[in-house]
Design a protein around this nucleic acid. Sequence first.
DNA 1: GCCCACATTTTGTGATCACATTTTCATCAA
DNA 2: TTGATGAAAATGTGATCACAAAATGTGGGC
Lengths: 237, 237
Amino acid sequence: MADRSRPRQAGDAQAPSAAVRHSLRDRVEASVREALLTGRFVPGRAVTLRGLAEELKVSPMPVREAVRALSAGHALEIRANGRIQVPTMTPSRLAELVRARVLLEPELAEAAAAHLGPREAAALAAIDDRIDASLDGGDAETYMRLNHSFHFTIYRAAGSEVLLPLVESLWLQFAPFMRTVYGRVGTSALIDHHKEAIEAVRARDAAALRKAVAADIRCGMDLLDIGLPDAVPSGPG
Amino acid sequence: MADRSRPRQAGDAQAPSAAVRHSLRDRVEASVREALLTGRFVPGRAVTLRGLAEELKVSPMPVREAVRALSAGHALEIRANGRIQVPTMTPSRLAELVRARVLLEPELAEAAAAHLGPREAAALAAIDDRIDASLDGGDAETYMRLNHSFHFTIYRAAGSEVLLPLVESLWLQFAPFMRTVYGRVGTSALIDHHKEAIEAVRARDAAALRKAVAADIRCGMDLLDIGLPDAVPSGPG
DNA sequence: GCCCACATTTTGTGATCACATTTTCATCAA
DNA sequence: TTGATGAAAATGTGATCACAAAATGTGGGC
């Protein structure tokens, strides 16, 4: 699905679990996760077992299990007729996603601060440089991949077994919609608080890191709120 | 798995999704969920596809998908050798579960308050009466089922699509361990804040409901903390 | 031109089989 | 008694097939 011939750089998306596992199922799940996180799977897109299987050159069997796992986290939706699709966004769902992100991610960032230092600050700065480049180039897909890497480079440092999976689930849910908004309003209007976050990591200031992450979430999701009314006809007026 | 011949009462556990679905996979998943939530599946217990299939009188196929879905939410654990088991508890994981519950559930309760009234307060009171009876009888399994019903009768009223599944995931994770603690210290030491919650629902007082739920969580989980050191030899000192 | 009926295709679900790996357990030697 | 060893059983993974339901496309009637 994705061309991996390019040399690995900081900020490249990777499977959340250990890399030693090489079951087809995990490979399929990783592919779909990345497709959702980078916006290649847009809301409403139909996902069929045989279609995905053919695309990934595997039998429908591992696809079934991967899709089932992703549906369990609401990253994919099983409709009443059994068909599978990327979930569509509604105003209330978006509001809830923002609420959940604001509750959980600053918590994770604050807990991560103790495990972050100059080395990680440099890595984050490298990712952020590539983010700026992708924004200038209008490359939404690369931007989304790097933005995910930026946040999860921080979050993973918290060593969380519970909160981190919850946050991953949230990202899988809002990312596809994020992509459609970028396609409509562009990525140039994007303002983030990555610089403040990097500075906070450098200073080992947990409170400042929490604040930067919280601000970053609000800014990013506000953009989605702006893009929502046009996307959902049944919006709240 | 469970005997359903008893007439349906308020507080009986039920599948989270619509009841009209009658695929074997959903039935299997519902069975395992209830087994986890009531503590019939204890931490460390091995779960095999063929074993579960035989127990539920289905082929291994629907079991595979159900287990995959539950593993995605960390309700079951896939070990490095591929075997499936109920996850074991660690002090850090328990602490995280408490943190996540305290963050999310009061939020859900506060949002639910607007949709709850005297009718729901009566239903909650009915469940709480049965809870008291189960505590007197020392029936931990019934207690856990009813306690789950009590909380989710409140939470479901919030009409949440995002937060509710997250909280369901948390319950599936701590419930099996909860059961082992009850088996060790008994259920008689249990103090909850259900009465305050019912009163808050009656008064349509969102802030009071949030407070009652938060207090209830802390009390219940503190008991687990007490039971933890004996359960996990590698505890924190 | 538009709508309904029917045949065809697509799709998810469940079952069964084959296979490699791991676990379990009986056997035997020290 | 203990530890190693090899056979046997158990287990997850992947593939293929059958089937029912739903979607899609097509032709005929108004």
